[in-house]
């Protein structure tokens, strides 16, 4: 069990760490870093599904007959680039929040919002 499944478990452990950081930290930049960890954990799960014993990278060559599955690679390759684009979008939002509230902390921003609502 351990020898055949540890790949999945490490993905789960990383996913737990990422999920914990996203949920527990109120700093929005830290949340995005946690989201990246979460993302990489999902990537690792996908890639490990494509691996085959004794296989090689899916680049056809006369010297090899067994190849790992190319489809997860394609999905994850595009997901990584889309991931950095969405991370940049999140960071742009963080910069705007910092300009508007003077903080990158979501709790402090919520408190500021509540104060403003009481004043009006």
């Amino acid at each position: 069990m351990i020898a055949s499944h540890y790949n999945y478990w490490i993905a789960v452990v990383l996913l737990m760490i990422g999920l914990y950081v996203v949920m527990s930290h109120s700093n929005t930049i830290k949340k995005l870093i946690g989201l990246n960890v979460f993302q990489v954990a999902v990537f690792m799960l996908y890639i490990s599904l494509g691996k085959i014993e004794g296989g090689t990278a899916p680049i056809v060559d006369a010297a090899f007959t067994v190849y790992s599955h190319p489809l997860p690679h394609v999905l994850i390759l595009t997901a990584i680039v889309v991931g950095v684009a969405t991370t940049a979008l999140g960071l742009a939002l963080v910069v705007r929040i910092h300009e508007a509230y003077g903080t990158t902390d979501e709790d402090e921003a919520l408190i500021a919002d509540r104060r403003e609502a009481e004043r009006t």
């Binding site: 990246n36 990489v40 990278a57 190849y67 790992s68 690679h73 990584i80 950095v84 960071l91």
Partner: peptide, 29 residues
């Protein structure tokens, strides 16, 4: 795990682009 294309992308994006973007944001906040 034989995913050379993915590794290539992850190394260029994760270690390069994402870090630069995070540092750029941290310089502003």
């Amino acid at each position: 795990q034989d995913a050379v294309d993915v590794a290539f992308t992850e190394a260029a994006v994760g270690a390069g682009m994402t870090t630069v973007l995070f540092l750029g944001t941290l310089a502003l906040t």
